[in-house]
């Protein structure tokens, strides 16, 4: 018999549906006016001051949206940060350079920046070539961006999105010219480099919350709330599951053994 579900994946469908439902309800509630408070992120608080200082010194701002294409969620999150950042730079009358290594990212980033400068009433200042495609090769991309940074001497470098080995090379380039560096990535392998070399870092999930926090969009704040509820539910399941497993081990009683089996069946990954 044909089945819509692969054998043994009912729990993934169930939990996936529950996660989607919680996030969906949270989005609807936020859109209807439910208040969603987002905690303060120090890197974002530092952004205003860094933009103002950079522009006051006549130095440009550099933004790198990671090294992946537009279909990577971290790139999407990075572009969500670019929108309010571009507005801040435009309002301050500064120059914003966005070197990219994917054509689609370039196209979207250019549209975002152009609109931000237009909305800030500084369309006259904007130049399309400030958002440029360099190369798909991430090390070729870094070689060029580091060269540009050395020559343009930006006052602020913002590195957001997915990074691989180029993270430290980019951060080092900004450090060499004394730029304030604000970074954010959900790439666990690269986070240590950014933490060590940048002034402020958005850790993991904070990157996805940053755009919503800066823009205050109700739907995205609602989504954030839904995700947080799921995280707390996961934490509760972890504690409960561990306690049940421990009691099953220690007592060997049938009810605890059955309950442990039920827990493991619900959370079986494959």
């Amino acid at each position: 018999m044909n089945s819509w579900l692969a054998p043994g994946t009912w729990n993934i469908a169930l939990i996936g549906a529950m996660v989607c439902a919680v996030i969906g309800v949270s989005v609807v509630r936020a859109r209807r006016g439910a208040h969603v408070q987002v905690r303060a992120f120090p890197p974002l608080l530092a952004l205003d001051r860094a933009v103002a200082d950079s522009v006051a010194q006549g130095r440009p701002v550099y933004f790198v949206a990671g090294s992946q294409d537009i279909d990577n969620m971290q790139t999407v999150a990075a572009l969500a940060v670019l929108r309010p950042l571009a507005r801040k730079v435009a309002e301050a009358g500064g120059r914003l350079f966005v070197p990219t290594n994917r054509s689609l990212v370039m196209d979207n980033a250019r549209e975002i920046c152009r609109r931000a400068y237009h909305d800030a009433g500084r369309a006259d200042l904007w130049r399309d070539d400030w958002v440029a495609y360099i190369s798909d090769d991430h090390l070729g991309f870094v070689a060029r961006v580091d060269g540009l940074i050395a020559r343009e001497r930006p006052g602020l470098c913002v590195l957001m999105g997915f990074f691989a080995s180029e993270s430290l090379l980019l951060a080092e380039g900004g450090h060499q010219v004394g730029a304030v560096q604000i970074a954010g990535t959900a790439s666990a392998v690269q986070l240590p480099f950014l933490v060590a070399s940048c002034d402020h870092v958005l850790l993991g999930e904070e990157l996805f919350a940053a755009g919503a926090s800066l823009e205050g969009d109700a739907a995205r704040l609602g989504s954030l709330r839904g995700q947080d509820l799921c995280k707390l539910a996961a934490a509760a399941c972890l504690v409960a599951g561990s306690l049940v497993a421990t009691l099953a081990d220690v007592t060997g009683a049938q009810p605890w053994l059955l309950l442990r089996e039920a827990f493991l069946n619900v959370f079986r990954a494959g």
């Binding site: 729990n11 993934i12 939990i15 049940v244 497993a245 081990d249 220690v250 959370f267």
Partner: peptide, 25 residues
């Protein structure tokens, strides 16, 4: 990605953490 990450970053993490109790023997 929803299904992939749900499996690898959510379910697998929970399964691995609760798979062994706090008092292994």
């Amino acid at each position: 990605s929803l299904v992939r990450y749900l499996r690898s970053d959510f379910l697998y993490q929970i399964e691995a953490t609760i798979g062994t109790g706090l008092a292994p023997t």
